[in-house]
Design a protein around this nucleic acid. Sequence first.
DNA 1: TACAGATTTGAACGATCGTTCAAATTTGGT
DNA 2: ACCAAATTTGAACGATCGTTCAAATCTGTA
Lengths: 195, 195
Amino acid sequence: MPRRTPRSAERRLEILQSAAAAFRRRGYHGASVEEIARALKMTKGNLYYYFRDKQDILFGCHEYSLGVALELLERVEAEPLPPDERLRRLIAGFVHLIIDELHGTGLTLELEALPRPLWQKVVAKRDRFDRGLRKILQDGMDQGLFVPGDPKLLAFAIMGALNWISRWYDPRGEAHSDDIAASFADYLVAGLRTG
Amino acid sequence: MPRRTPRSAERRLEILQSAAAAFRRRGYHGASVEEIARALKMTKGNLYYYFRDKQDILFGCHEYSLGVALELLERVEAEPLPPDERLRRLIAGFVHLIIDELHGTGLTLELEALPRPLWQKVVAKRDRFDRGLRKILQDGMDQGLFVPGDPKLLAFAIMGALNWISRWYDPRGEAHSDDIAASFADYLVAGLRTG
DNA sequence: TACAGATTTGAACGATCGTTCAAATTTGGT
DNA sequence: ACCAAATTTGAACGATCGTTCAAATCTGTA
């Protein structure tokens, strides 16, 4: 019975972090439960005290990263700002989220490995984020700030540019998360602006 | 001894296509050699007549998709066009390449599963494409067509938006490849333009 | 210190998978 | 129709992996 003590909840988070890193590097099926455990100096049998099975760990990773992403979205939605400034903060915030909070893991983990019920929960949460982003785009178009276009396609383009960061970002590299956030926000908002 | 007859070369390509689809859906380690074979009504043992091992199949997938991508790049570079029009054609061409030629598989397949020597070959080819894209961006900035910025970061943003198509594109969906190509080219070039 | 519950261990299991290979079958040219 | 080469089969292997679990150990508290 985990999650009773505070220590246990911390341990769960550590496991999710180790798993997210392993899944990102090797893919869900390529990462072994043992290597997730070894990175924390645990044994693999021990992980089953905190999670039912490997799928449950993947589900936990998705829930966690989508959770912080939705928090960011809600924070941005709460501020009284015009759509262009909203979008800029969402993009910059998402860059920081991927790099500084999720340590390189974005919303890129595999979904197909999850059984239907868990898959649906994750997809529903992801769709909430997508709809939030599309709404900002639509509002900008309605107010004449953004050039007309298909918000769905544009949201995909933005999410692709952002999530792709997981594939090339190297914490030892030269690019600092502030620079990336500013560059991406500039570029991806500028492409929408009217005259 | 494969590849002697024309039939054999075709078979090799069919295997690469089936494998690319399987790798995209399930990931390299999640896709089994048997399911790659079954989609072609072959037995898994038979694949080993055409490829040394599973890694060799993944390598073949990378070589093929990077090959057509580099062909596109060279075609675009050969035309006497200003950088903005060059970029537009490269982006639109890449969308068509992912959707129509690679059937949904972009440059998204896993690299980490490859042994060092093969990995280096693939990375070298990928870098050639990246450098080509960055050069177009740099030329545009030098000519005052594009706003100044870090070509490396901007190239990552563009490649992310494009490769992410593999994750959401559904051939049964509403979005046609022409629409996507036009939207993406418009958006991603507009973000660079000066006044 | 003693005890109950929380946590960890380590070995064992069944299943899946990549790979091999000798034998069988098919193919195309003469 | 015959033959040599090309291709396919199907069974078998060893290795890896996810999962289970009874026993051992640790932790906080009375």
